[in-house]
Write a protein that binds this DNA or RNA. Structure first.
Lengths: 197, 197, 197, 197
DNA sequence: AATGAATGAGAATTCATTCAT
DNA sequence: GATGAATGAATTCTCATTCAT
C-alpha cells in the first residue's frame, strides 16, 4: 500500500505524466547525442511531443535532464554488473568486471557524463552505488593481497577516469581494453604481477 | 638570417596591432578562467580595452582564440622542457620530465584545452612538437630497454590524457604526481621495474 | 461545410495569437511605408507592441512579412474586382477594369511589391488569382476580336509591369491612366481601334 | 593648356590616383553584379586592391560609386548612339535607335540603375544628354507628323521605363524588342500607323 | 596620398522561462 | 495538467567611417 510507505518520495506520477517523463528522457538522449548538449530545450520538447512548459515542469533545468538520463543508464546498464560483482568469489576479477562494465556504459554519451562530473552531480545515488561497490572490492582485493595497499577509496574516481579516457566512441572495446589492462597492471600488488620473464 | 627568408609569411603586424593582439589574448585567458569558456566575446573585448570588431578581426571565432592561447602557452611553458629533453642523456628521465612539464601546463585552464581537443585542433603546430619529442624519447627508451616494447607513438596521446585526469586545479603537484608514477610504472619495461621486494 | 473538412490546414491560431499577427502586419505596413523596406525588425515589433521573438515566431524572415502583407492586400483590394470581372459581359471592359484595379493597389507600397517580384515570390496564391483571371479575359477578348491575337498569357506580367511604371505615389490616377490608355490602345485588335479620323 | 581652362573642374587627378579610381570602378561593377548592391564597401576595396580609406576618399558614399559607374556606361555605351541620332535624317528611326540603344545599356546592371532612379540621381549629366536628345527627336517626329502630338517631353522618362521593364537579363534582344515595338506603335501618329488591313 | 587597424553603434537571431487559455 | 504563445534579455556579427602610421 502506497499510503503506508514510510518514504513515499516525491509522490507517484500519474500514468500519463509518467509516460511523458519517459518520452522526454528518450527524446533528450537522442537530442543530446545528435545535436549536442546545448540543444535547445524546446527542441527536446518537440521531439518528445510535449509542450516546453511540460518539459519544464518535470525537469526545471538542463542538468536535471542529464541527471535523470544517467540515473536511468546506471540502473539499466550497470546495476546488474554491480550485483553480480558483490557475490563474485574472486574480488580482483569482480573489480575488473565492474570497471569494464562502467567503461562500456561510458562508451556512449561521454560528453554528457563529463558535463555532469564537472558540475559535481555525478556522485549522486547512482554514482554512489558504483563507487561503494568498488570500495568494497578494493578492500577485499587488498585483504587478499591482490592489490597495492597504498590505494584508497579516494583513488577510485581518478582511476576510473584514467581508464575512461581511452574509451573512444566508434572504436571497439579492444582499443580501450588494452589501456585498461595497462592501468590495472599498475594497480596489482607487486607480488601478484605476472612474472616478467 | 631572417632578413633573407624568402617566405616572410603573412607580413608582420603593425606595432599597435601586435599590442592589441597581445592584450586580447591576455584578456581572453583571464575571462575564460574566471567566467568560463562561454564568456561573451564582447566581455573579452571589454577587458582588453578594444572594440568587439577588433577582436573579430584577429580572432574570427572563439576557437581561434583558444588555439592562440594554447599556442602561446605551449611555447612559453613547454618548449624549454622539450628542448632540454632532447639533449638529456637518460631517455627515461627525459620522458618523465616532459610528461610532468605537460601536466604542469595542463594544470590550469584544463577546460579550454579539453575543448580544443574535442574539436581536433590540438594536434596543430604546438601539440605536434610535444608529441614528436615524446615519440623520439619513446624510441630511445625502448632501445635502452627501459620501456615496454608494445607501446607505439599512437599510444602517447592516450597516455598523456590518462595522466592528466589526475591533474586537479587547486591541488598540489604531489596529488597528480602519485597517479603519474603509478601510470609510468605500468609503462616501464618489466625488467626495469623496481624490485617488488 | 467547414466542420467536415478533412484537411483543416495547420490548425487555427489561438485568438490572442491571431490578434498579434494582425497587429504585426499592420505595424509592418506602416513601418515599411515610413521607414523603408530595410526597417529593423525590432522597430516593427515595437510598433506592434510585441517582443521581437513574437514577430520571429510568425514571420521568420522579412520576406515572410512582405508576402503576408501582399496576400492581404490582394485579398482585400483586388479580389472583389476579380470576381466582378469574371461575370462582366464585355471582356475588354473587364480586362481594363482588372488592370486598373491592380494599378490602384500598386499605387501604394510599390517598393515592397517590387522587392517581392525580384525574389520570385510574387506568383504565389494571390498573384496567381490575378493572372489567372487576366488570362481568361485575354482569351475572351481575343475570341471576341477585341485584342491582338499575337498576345499570349506570358505577356501579361510584362504588360502589367509596363502599366505600373507610370503609377507614381502622390500623383492622381489621371496621371497613370493616360499611360495605361496608351498601352491598352496598343493591345487592341487593329480593327477595334478607334478611327484615327 | 590646362591652366587656361575656364572650368578646370575638381583638379586633375595624379596618374596613380586616376588608375586607382578606374580600378575601383571596375571592381565595384563586378562586386555589385556578383554580390548585389549591398556589397560591403570593404569588399569592393579589396577587389580593387586598395585600402578602404582610399575608396572612401574617392567615393564618399555608395551612391557616388553608382553614379560614377553609370556616368561611365552612358558615356561609353550610349553617347555614340546619341551623336548618330542627332544627324539622322529620319527622326522616327533615330528615336527608335536611341531608345533601343538605351535598352541595350539597361540590359545589364538594371538593379543599380533602378536604385539610382529612386534616389533621383538619374537626371544627372549623363541622363540629361539622353533625354535632351530624345526631346529634340520627339519634336522633330511630331513636326513630321510621325508621332502623336499629345506627347510631351515629360512623357519620355515614363516611356523609357515602360520599355525597360521587358528587358530581362539573360534573355535575348528579341524578347524586349517585341514589347518595345508594341509600345512604339502606340506612340505613332494615328495616320502613320501601319494599315491594319 | 595610401594604408589598414580600430571603432562603436546597430541588426538579426536565439532561448530559457513565464503565463494566459 | 498540459498547452503553446509571448517574453526580453543576451549574444553574435557586420560595416561605414575615422585615425594613427
Amino acid at each position: 500500500m502506497t499510503s503506508s510507505n514510510p518514504d513515499p518520495g516525491p509522490r507517484p506520477l500519474r500514468a500519463d505524466a509518467l509516460r511523458n517523463q519517459q518520452r522526454i528522457l528518450t527524446a533528450a538522449r537522442a537530442a543530446f547525442a545528435e545535436d549536442g548538449l546545448e540543444t535547445p530545450l524546446e527542441d527536446i520538447a518537440k521531439r518528445a511531443g510535449v509542450a516546453p512548459a511540460t518539459l519544464y515542469r518535470r525537469f526545471p533545468s538542463r542538468d536535471d535532464l542529464l541527471v535523470a538520463i544517467w540515473e536511468q543508464r546506471f540502473q539499466e546498464e550497470l546495476d546488474p554488473a554491480l550485483t553480480a560483482a558483490a557475490d563474485h568469489p574472486d574480488p580482483w576479477a569482480a573489480f575488473v568486471d565492474v570497471v569494464a562494465a562502467a567503461m562500456r556504459m561510458w562508451s556512449v554519451e561521454q560528453d554528457s557524463l563529463e558535463a555532469l562530473r564537472r558540475k559535481g552531480a555525478l556522485m549522486q545515488s547512482s554514482g554512489l552505488r558504483l563507487f561503494e561497490t568498488l570500495r568494497r572490492l578494493l578492500e577485499r582485493c587488498q585483504q587478499a593481497g591482490r592489490m597495492r595497499t597504498d590505494l584508497t577509496p579516494d583513488d577510485l574516481p581518478v582511476i576510473l577516469r584514467m581508464a575512461s579516457v581511452a574509451v573512444t566512441p566508434g572504436r571497439s572495446e579492444t582499443h580501450w581494453r588494452r589501456y585498461l589492462d595497462l592501468l590495472l597492471d599498475a594497480l596489482r600488488a607487486p607480488a601478484d604481477r605476472p612474472d616478467p620473464r
